[in-house]
Computed example of a mutant assay.
Amino acid sequence: MGTDRLDEILDATYDCLTRYGVRRTTMDDIATTMGVSRSAVYQYVRSKDDAFRQLAGRLHDQALVRAREAACDQDTPYAERIRGVLAAKLDLVLHLAGDSPHTAELLDAKARLFGGICTAFTADLRRLLIGLFTETGTAEGVEPAEAADISIALVIGLENMPDARRLLGPASGALTAGLLGAPAVVR
């Protein structure tokens, strides 16, 4: 029951975030959205900041699970596995950017509340990509870490592009073809 109630609190926190943003949301707003007392919310989170940190952590963790699943899919060609890791990051960004102007606050690597979560998420994606590029090998003169950094830069560049989801396939296909030194399948 505790995890379910925490999920409800984080869902309510997200709802408040979309309406008010981090600064203007109060614990009363979260409790009212849930239909419970403020003291009931405090049983699961220490503060508004704690609720927002846990919410950011949950969203980034969900995206990381998708990235790991893509990276570990042994039945899929490497280029598609790499695209899957990048898609997890892009989907998180586009989802948050699309819900409200306030939800993008959860992606700010420089923010006091979320910076560590965002930085750790990107570092985890980088490690997954380095692992994939190490397994498959990279083009001559390109180290796996460099290939991972280039791939992350690609997805960051796509984050503000119109039609970013559609562009990810051909962009990552072209990128991996060059980084892997072999033709890549683009879907």
Rank of each mutant, 00 (worst) to 15 (best):
G131H: 13
S151D: 02
A111L: 05
V36Q: 09
G131P: 11
Y20I: 01
A97N: 00
G35P: 09
D50G: 06
A67W: 04
R66D: 07
Y20T: 04
R126N: 10
V186D: 02
S151F: 02
E146C: 14
D75N: 11
T26Y: 06
A164T: 00
T3Q: 13
G84P: 06
P77R: 15
C16A: 10
F133I: 09
D49L: 05
R166K: 11
F114Q: 05
E135V: 10
G98P: 00
A145I: 12
V22Y: 15
V155M: 07
A97S: 04
D61N: 14
D163Q: 14
T13L: 03
E159F: 00
I117D: 03
R46W: 04
A153C: 09
R24G: 01
R81H: 12
F121G: 01
C118R: 15
A182Y: 07
A104L: 14
V65E: 11
V36E: 08
A171F: 11
V155Q: 07
A174F: 10
H102F: 15
L168D: 01
P101K: 08
E146A: 15
A51Q: 06
K48C: 01
A88P: 02
F52N: 01
R46I: 00
Q74K: 13
R23M: 04
L94Y: 02
D75K: 11
T134H: 13
I150T: 15
A139Q: 10
V186E: 08
L107P: 02
L10H: 13
A104I: 15
K89P: 00
A63V: 02
T103K: 03
R68H: 08
A147H: 08
T176N: 06
A56G: 12
M1H: 10
E80K: 10
E135P: 06
P162Q: 08
R165L: 10
L94S: 01
Q54A: 13
M27S: 12
R187K: 05
G178V: 08
M161K: 05
F133E: 05
L6I: 09
I9T: 11
V186P: 03
L90R: 02
E146V: 15
V186A: 08
L59Q: 09
T119F: 07
R83W: 00
A177F: 01
G137V: 06
G98S: 08
P101E: 11
F114N: 06
E69D: 14
E69W: 01
Q43Y: 08
C72K: 07
S37T: 10
A79L: 04
A79Q: 12
L125Q: 14
A148G: 10
P144Y: 08
S151C: 06
